[in-house]
Design a binder for these strands. Structure first.
Lengths: 121, 121
DNA sequence: TCAATAGTTCAACAGACCTTGAACTAAGGA
DNA sequence: TCCTTAGTTCAAGGTCTGTTGAACTATTGA
């Protein structure tokens, strides 16, 4: 487990990278669920997403989301706690995340977006 | 030149396909320029975009944009006239296109988005 | 009719992407 | 200390993408 988790600064977040992240069904499902539960439980753990894919595949997608600046990860014990970088995204691309999330919510069934069950934080 | 140009209906336009289109620099530049000039000249032609890439590569990207539902193409003589499907996109994904275009405009320099010169329509 | 113009289609290639399983590391609990 | 849990990393694979040039088709104008 690497000690250092690379995050871009707010200014380094790029539009194409964000769009690319949100065009993948698994990553969209991750962001969708992060957004859906962010008020209730705050941060989520990798294990909360095992319903979406296998561990190593999720690690791959988490790294993409983190490196593109969509989410922030901090290590607590053996766990990784993740949350959306809402304010940074809103600052760089006003209205974008909300528009995507609203459309995803409307199309949730068609997109087969799973709503996951989360453990206590 | 095939006679039939396939367009999805409004309802068939899918969020991941749209996001994927907008995550490619060339396609973003096409949409950006279509939006920038849509009020002035209405429709644009393939040749207007030769500054972005070669003919055959553009044809590839135009097909992607058309098949994902971002733009509409009609044949007039040997030309293809293209325009953004603004209303359809707004109906399916409210606020999304405007948010993307506003962010693209703000980041135009960083994204190296070229502003093309257009011929008369 | 012939040549020029506008754009498409095809084959080929390199590179990127997603997925998988196995091996690994690090922290916590018994 | 040893086992378990949580997550990462690596190598390998198949597939999808973007790009190119050459060949093609269709339309217009002379």
């Amino acid at each position: 487990m690497s000690r250092i988790l690379l995050h871009p600064t707010r200014e380094q977040i790029e539009l194409p990278g964000v769009m690319d992240c949100l065009s993948d069904p698994i990553r969209l499902a991750i962001v969708y669920n992060l957004a859906k539960r962010e008020k209730e439980v705050g941060e989520l753990r990798c294990g909360d997403f095992y319903g979406l894919s296998g561990k190593s595949n999720l690690a791959y997608h988490f790294a993409k989301l983190r490196e593109a600046g969509l989410m922030e990860t901090r290590a607590v014990g053996t766990a990784r706690l993740m949350k959306l970088r809402r304010e940074d995204l809103e600052s760089r691309f006003p209205g974008l995340l909300d528009a995507v999330l609203a459309s995803a919510e409307r199309d949730a069934e068609r997109l087969q977006l799973p709503v996951l069950e989360f453990t206590e934080a």
